[in-house]
Design a protein around this nucleic acid. Structure first.
Lengths: 237, 237
DNA sequence: ACCTGAACACCGTTCAAGT
DNA sequence: ACCTGAACACCGTTCAAGT
């Protein structure tokens, strides 16, 4: 992706070295993202930060979406690295999920950038490959390993998205508190302290543990037959 | 939210009836969203569709973000309705998750709209209240019920986001296939058919089943002590 | 080969003025 | 009270022209 949009480089020493290049542009874009957030990351501001005119960016990224994809891909650097082999598979699955969460949390709006793109670079692929590998190594069939990976990634993205949104709108907790007029929503009222708690690390590990426990007790096969009897409304129409 | 930004209405029969109102504007906005997608939903296009000038929209919604929040809130209409009582709690949890998924799937980019807002209207609150209620009714402590709700909602949002993104970029599957040069990423290669499958309903129910199975085998208490020893990198710094 | 300068077709938002 | 008309300060993207 980033590779295909990289222009031809002149041979070493031939011609002027370019003032811009894709890798540095992504670096600066990620720094800008972390400082100001996704809404403030405009091509013009990026051009300023990188010391060029707006149009120059389009030599390296055909579109802003391509830039965001390259940023997403960059974020996952290292997330597919080999795992410490002394851990059992549930620990390894947890480690992979936390790697991804930490990668997205490292930049403001990181989850939004990632969710809004479809990176298929080495970092992203190697992350998925490692996670699928852990599950296949644990004895899961290829299908189940793929589906479990999909579930874990979906959970991580959704959870991190919520967490970073809460970071950006800290007034949201009190807002929910005040929306709970006494009498209505008794269950929400009973659970409000935990729901509005900013301890997202604990929330995350709770949900992750549910998924891993589910995997532990998963019996292969019969999955499709078992579920064929309760299709969602969407598939029924 | 939508309530607070609704302007004072004249008494019945007094003055001209307004050509706009918040409810109809949200209706038209949702129709436009479903037809053209979130990127094409601009205030100007909405004004056209509603038969007014752009500025008129700002009498009912202080900002575009408020409009999107009202849309998100509207999407969840009915999702908090009482559940059929003949089902056991795992079935009821599954039903709530599928209700939310179906609600977000009903409009193009529905998940993106929902993920990008923080609706705290009756529909959203009543949905959460019902889900927390199912879990409390099943015997879960308030804290666990809240955290499980958070996990389920995160999973639904993340999963539906991916599903609708795949709807919008159907060329992405082949793209991943072609990125898998033989030799690299053996696990991804083994699992590629399931990973690129468009059967998101099956994917969704697989992940949902993992979470519900996890809940079934959840033992209350000891959660915090158990996890305190493995903080994520983020909490460590 | 790489970048500038300038333009094009849009945006969200504001606000005086009309009715 | 409700809406129009017009403006302001931006956007992403394109492309001839310079060096």
């Amino acid at each position: 992706m980033a590779t295909s949009s990289t222009p031809q480089r002149a041979g070493p020493g031939r011609g002027r070295p370019p003032r811009l290049d894709a890798a540095r542009t992504v670096d600066v874009a990620l720094a800008l993202l972390d400082e100001a957030g996704l809404d403030a990351l405009t091509m013009r501001r990026l051009a300023d930060a990188v010391g060029a005119q707006v149009g120059a960016l389009y030599r390296y990224f055909a579109t802003k979406q391509d830039l965001l994809t390259a940023m997403a891909e960059r974020m996952l650097a290292g997330c597919g690295d080999p795992l410490p082999s002394h851990e059992n598979w549930p620990g390894q699955v947890a480690e992979m999920a936390e790697r991804m969460r930490n990668a997205l949390l490292r930049y403001q709006d990181g989850a939004r950038v990632f969710a809004g793109t479809h990176a298929v670079g080495v970092n992203t692929l190697s992350f998925s490959d490692t996670l699928v590998g852990v599950l296949r190594g644990a004895g899961f069939a290829d299908e189940d390993a793929a589906r479990a990976t999909f579930a874990i990634v979906s959970f991580v993205i959704g959870h991190t998205l919520e967490e970073q949104a809460a970071d950006a709108y800290p007034q949201d907790g009190p807002l929910l508190e005040s929306a709970l007029e006494p009498g209505a929503f008794p269950h929400l009222t009973a659970a409000r302290h935990t729901l509005t708690s900013a301890d997202f690390g604990t929330h995350f590990r709770f949900g992750l543990k549910l998924i891993i426990t589910g995997l532990r007790h998963h019996e292969p096969g019969r999955q499709d037959l078992h579920n064929a009897t309760r299709l969602s409304r969407r598939e029924q129409r």
